[in-house]
């Protein structure tokens, strides 16, 4: 349990560094630290599938960010000391929205089951009958590819659309 608390603290610290630091490359690397601590926490809450995907996807995310930063610029020129006149409105907006989100989230968290004691009504059926009905011993694979195949299909469509979007945005000139 204690290791989850420590990792949460490390993750929050790295997140603040990633938002606040001036060098954009260092910012991307700090975001990588956040992602890797998320991956370690996935292992600690017994989700190895998620941990594998998170680690690999995190590496690719940092590579994509690095490619973008090499294409554009290295330093964040918008950071300056003190609060300017034009910078005060976003801060007020953040305070309003941040407190709103926090209060509402904590209010909603009261309805959730306590940490470590989930309600598993549907999952019980999948766990007990999963091996007989699908033949897969990895219950997560059985759910994403058999019980909830539609979900995965929609995901494939979204990924296809995003690839299409990237190639369309970045192409040199339109076809005549």
């Amino acid at each position: 349990m204690i290791e989850i608390y420590l990792l949460v603290i490390a993750m929050l610290a790295a997140a603040i560094v990633a938002i606040e630091i001036k060098d954009l490359l260092a910012s991307a690397v700090s975001m990588g630290i956040v992602g890797f601590s998320v991956a370690i926490m996935f292992i600690l809450v017994q989700a190895p599938d998620l941990a594998i995907v998170q680690i690999v996807v995190e590496i690719l995310t940092v590579v994509f960010f690095a490619a973008t930063i090499l294409r554009t610029t290295h330093t964040d020129t918008t950071i300056q000391k003190g609060i300017q006149r034009e910078g005060i409105f976003p801060v007020i907006a953040f305070f309003i929205f941040g407190t709103l989100v926090t209060v509402l989230a904590i209010y909603a968290l009261k309805d959730l089951p306590r940490f470590g004691m989930p309600i598993m009504k549907v999952a019980e059926h999948y766990i007990v009958h999963g091996l007989n009905q699908t033949g897969a011993t990895n219950i997560v694979a059985a759910i994403i590819l058999d019980y909830r195949g539609y979900d995965t299909f929609g995901e494939a469509v979204v990924l296809f659309t995003s690839v299409l979007g990237v190639l369309t945005i970045l192409r040199v000139k339109g076809r005549k």
Binding site: D49, I52, N138, A141, L145
Partner: peptide, 11 residues
């Protein structure tokens, strides 16, 4: 080995 061990098509 996605149906036997952790992992699968995405990873």
């Amino acid at each position: 080995h996605g149906h036997l061990t952790p992992g699968g098509g995405f990873a």
